[in-house]
Design a protein around this nucleic acid. Structure first.
Length: 108
DNA sequence: TTTCTGACAACAA
DNA sequence: ATTGTTGCCAGAA
């Protein structure tokens, strides 16, 4: 296993998130083996911005809140992307989050 | 090299 | 229920 194994796994999982679905940092971290590495998942996303085609807008925190929206190009780009996939966002939070939640541990 | 921080989340008090 | 601390990994100072 290489050093950046964690990053690669994160990328891989995020890229497999189906259209119109979302997942969380914790879910990915848990799938990778450690639920506490959720932070690192977010870090991977930050890095992914300049590396690959990662749908980072589909990754939210456990509350379904667009925590990382501020890191996107615009202020509401992340929100727009989600709405573009048929989702609904109110007050930087995904509506029916539980319904759209895609857990790699369960569905992959 | 040591220390701090960061798109989070769980546990303790 | 709310607040504070701890764990995880990688990068910057």
């Amino acid at each position: 296993m290489k050093k950046m194994d964690f990053f690669l796994k994160v990328y891989d999982v995020v890229k497999k998130v189906p259209y119109g679905r979302v997942t969380t940092y914790g879910a990915i971290a848990n799938y990778l083996g450690s639920r506490k590495s959720a932070r690192t998942v977010g870090w991977a996303m930050n890095s992914s911005h300049q590396n690959s085609d990662i749908p980072a807008h589909r990754v939210l925190n456990r509350n379904g809140v667009l925590t990382g929206k501020h890191h996107f190009s615009g202020t509401n780009l992340m929100k727009q992307l989600l709405e573009n996939e048929g989702l609904r966002v109110v007050d930087d939070k995904l509506v029916n989050f539980n319904k759209y939640f895609w857990d790699p541990s369960t569905e992959l």
